[in-house]
Amino acid sequence: MTAVTSRLSAVPLTGWIGMALIAINLFLFAFGPMLAPYGQEEIVGVPFDAPQPGHPLGFDQNGRDMLSRVLYGAQTSIGISLAAVCLSFAIGVPLGILAALRGGWLDLVLSRLVDTVMSIPVLISALVVLQALGSSLPVLIVTIACLDSTRVFRLARLVAQGINVMDYAEVARLRGEGLAWMIRREILPNVLPPLVAEFGMRFCFTFLFVAGLSFLGLGVQPPFADWGGMVRDNQQGILYGLYAPLFPAAAIALVTIGVNLTVDWMLSGRTTVQGDNR
């Protein structure tokens, strides 16, 4: 217990802010639409009208309540990214560990394939696939998950390789343990910590990526409200000095800042440096 409390007291302010932002966003993800005062398609005012009582964030380009739209958008934006990241880990982690344990041609083929996919910028690959298949929610999620799983694969393979050459893994092999035991008991428990941090970073990346695609008009398609698309729809407002597009953009920024602050705190303190007390 004391270990837990002393660790908690060691969390810096930035770490707390990060975790608070994540908590708020998870809450919005779960309950956002229930909290929204108006429907996401409901036209309740004048286009681009300024914030006013009852409509703290004003109205969008069609005269819909901005706050309600942002609350609805939480589910789409966060949901798609979460689904894509979970899927990419479900693909990348097992394959990465398998490649590390098995080695040989399987490792060679997978690694070469991953290297090639990674030698094309993700955005470009995504555009190529969206060009061929058109944009829909499943296509979006699967495409991003597959592209992203290359990075997860690489990390999982690297970490698993590091564990696999440890003496304790060798002991298990010399005991004749099967693949299932090796993965479940020897490798997975030890690769988990770095993968958790990676999950945060990949989520951040994916989240920005989905929002970016939507901003380009190639991501989430109407009628779903999502933050990236809302920025795009309201972008013109900025030229008239209106804040409308900034609200969804700020919502995006708060999610990524939250995750980044948390991951940054989790990863800090791992490095030691010479000469601090000289």
Binding site: F215, A249, A253
Partner: peptide
């Protein structure tokens, strides 16, 4: 610099872009 850099990394390009348009162009 670390906190500032973290913030800039987290912000979507279009958010920064729109802010700059608002401040350095429109206003």
């Amino acid at each position: 610099s670390n906190v500032a850099a973290l913030a800039f990394v987290s912000l979507p390009e279009y958010f920064l872009g729109l802010l700059l348009v608002l401040w350095l162009s429109v206003k």
